[in-house]
């Protein structure tokens, strides 16, 4: 496997304006995401884990030696989570899911609005840094919950198909203490086409 790199944003830094501002995107991608990658590499380079995909490391976190386990969990999680975050957002996106994912959301949550309410509550209720997640469980069902810090659902056996970063660094420059406003606006940039693809892949 080639050495891990920081994927460039799939759109411009200002592309998610006005919902997510350019200064936030620059520091979030170029500084925070980069630092997670750098710290992950520092932990695994020169070990037997350096060529293992980070998702696999997180899925088998219990098997990682204690010496580097926290670094893999925190920085490996930070690397993987932000990769997903960028690719599941897009300019001129939002709206609602379609196809199989739309059906599954209706079945699991009753309606898209009910899902949104549950997801927003998970995001608002995460005390301190963390993420709200939409996941596909081992049984193939959809579920919503939040996890602290950079913990990724794969460590608990679930596959994340959508994540909302509620670390303060994700919104503080534009929204300061108003996390609820950030969450409400974020729906405008969710790339449901991509989330639908990830749902299809996770169900296979």
């Amino acid at each position: 496997m080639a050495k891990l790199t920081l994927p460039p944003l799939p759109y411009g830094y200002a592309a998610l304006e006005p919902w997510i501002d350019e200064p936030t995107m620059r520091v979030h991608h170029d500084k925070h995401h980069q630092a997670y990658l750098d710290n992950l590499l520092k932990a695994i380079t020169g070990t037997e884990f350096e060529n293992v995909p980070p998702e696999k490391l997180l899925a088998g976190l219990g098997q990682i030696p204690e010496k580097i386990r926290a670094a893999v969990r925190n920085h490996g999680g930070g690397y993987v989570n932000h990769n997903l975050f960028w690719e599941t957002m897009a300019p001129q996106a939002g709206g609602a899911p379609a196809g199989e994912l739309a059906k599954a959301v209706g079945k699991e949550f009753g309606s898209f609005d009910a899902f949104k309410e549950k997801f927003a509550a998970a995001a608002a209720g995460q005390f301190g840094s963390g993420w709200a997640w939409l996941v596909v469980t081992r049984a193939g069902a959809l579920a919503v919950y939040s996890l602290p810090n950079q913990d990724n659902p794969v460590t608990g056996g679930d596959t994340a198909i959508l994540g909302l970063d509620v670390w303060e660094h994700a919104y503080y420059l534009k929204y300061q203490n108003r996390r609820a406003e950030y969450i409400g606006n974020w729906w405008n940039v969710v790339n449901w086409t991509k989330v639908g693809e990830l749902y299809g892949r996770a169900r296979k």
């Binding site: 500084k31 925070h32 630092a35 301190g128 303060e168 660094h169 420059l173």
Partner: peptide
């Protein structure tokens, strides 16, 4: 060391 303590002045 919550980010809200320093993010406006020091970012990351």
């Amino acid at each position: 060391v919550w980010e809200h303590a320093y993010y406006i002045d020091y970012r990351n």
